[in-house]
Design a protein around this nucleic acid. Structure first.
Lengths: 232, 232
DNA sequence: GTATCATTCAAACGGCCGTTTGAAACGAGC
DNA sequence: GCTCGTTTCAAACGGCCGTTTGAATGATAC
């Protein structure tokens, strides 16, 4: 009874997932040891293998816990817009909003770990480990084709291949934006004002749309001409 | 003499740097072991500690070997434009060309390892390891303020803070673009055509410029609503 | 109480890590 | 030839890795 003063164990699994998530962001998968995780979580070393089976399985569960919901939410947002449109092609800003807006909203949640997770996710797109990449590919299998198709319909004048590249560029911009302050300090030696995450969305979304709808590089843009400002 | 048929050792240091560079891209710093590096380089395990002192020092030398030149080249390109301009502010596309064009040109060099290095560099912006981040900050100390100043002058109507963020977004887009095919396969399950690196430049530069010059989010760009939310 | 199941624990396992060592091999100058 | 400084080599070092074990503990139902 009174022997254990703070020993309460409010779901060992969850404590481990939280600790692992934070440590993976800080140090990466390989550099994060089981002893670091269990130490931070305040549980026994063997708890990871007992509850998850292996370190690899733990990594996958860290992603599954939030990524499944995130992708479902992305699809729900897209479908909401498509319902509104009644069969008409969506506007680019709607598609961008459905995919990246949902992500940024999760990144804005600093209370329940959404921010930490989105940083991890951004870091992981470039993660080379084979099994992680395979895992991500599976998790995205349901959502990516839907957004590709929506973009193709939305921008019929842009070659599909070009659209895929720009989608990729947008992913990169967002990931850096969220992984954020770390790399940013390279650019701005002093803290860039607030952590206000809604502000990030206000900054990032125009950039993404500007890039997505930029004129194609059909011919050299370099000439002295005055870059024909095309109105949307 | 004829005893050694293929034993020729064309600079052990260089062989180690090449092997390490490639392996760091594939597996990350932590997951790449000295034995993997020396094995691939065909040199003795102790050679790394003999020639570089430690694994950490090797990592730094891998970067120094190319990054110093890259940043000097970036500065040279910027200064060339500034000389042309005779004191007038540069055009955004010139600044972007000076910074990112040089990078993309190095990424286009698949013969001498420039491509491998740029992939590593992109991966490393999000690298959390403290000493790597500190090292990068030092290496960029000479070049970043120059480009910041050029951008501020080039876009006097855009708040400096906004410019820094957009520079950051551009960095992210480029890094993903170069780190490239790996994360891209998430989006395009089949190979995206060529590896032609000049094509990447043709695709990326319009995107970057479109993002950089996108209208601010001050007011809604879209006709529908005015997004009355305003705090700042 | 006793039996049953899930969970926690301290301790140990083999294996690979980055690094060090001392001797062997090499090469240039004489 | 020999010397001397540089480079390579096989072998070993202590230490930490992810995982496993078997016993202790807790909770639940009878």
């Amino acid at each position: 009874m009174s022997l254990t003063e703070a020993k309460q164990h409010p779901d060992t699994r969850e404590r481990i997932l939280d600790a692992a998530e934070a440590l993976f962001v800080e140090h990466g998968f390989e550099a994060t040891t089981m002893r670091m995780i269990t130490g931070r979580a305040g549980v026994n070393l063997a708890a990871i293998n007992y509850h998850f089976g292996s370190k690899e399985a733990l990594i996958q569960d860290v992603f599954r816990r939030r990524l499944t919901w995130l992708n479902e939410e992305r699809l729900r947002a897209l479908e909401r817009f498509e319902k509104e449109a009644r069969g008409a092609p969506l506007k680019p800003h709607q598609i961008v909003e459905a995919f990246f807006g949902v992500s940024l909203r999760m990144a804005a949640d600093t209370e329940h770990g959404g921010h930490t997770f989105m940083r991890l996710l951004g870091r992981t797109y470039t993660e080379p480990s084979a099994f992680v990449r395979q895992f991500l590919a599976d998790e995205y299998a349901a959502v990516v084709p839907r957004f590709k198709q929506a973009l193709f319909r939305s921008l019929p004048d842009v070659p599909p291949e070009e659209i895929l590249w720009r989608f990729h560029f947008m992913l990169g911009a967002m990931s850096y934006a969220i992984a954020g302050t770390d790399a940013l300090q390279l650019v701005a030696e002093h803290e860039l004002d607030e952590k206000d995450p809604e502000a990030l969305s206000r900054r990032l979304m125009p950039f993404l749309l500007g890039g997505l709808r930029a004129p194609l590089a059909g011919q050299a843009v370099k000439t002295k001409e005055k870059s024909p400002r095309k109105a949307a």
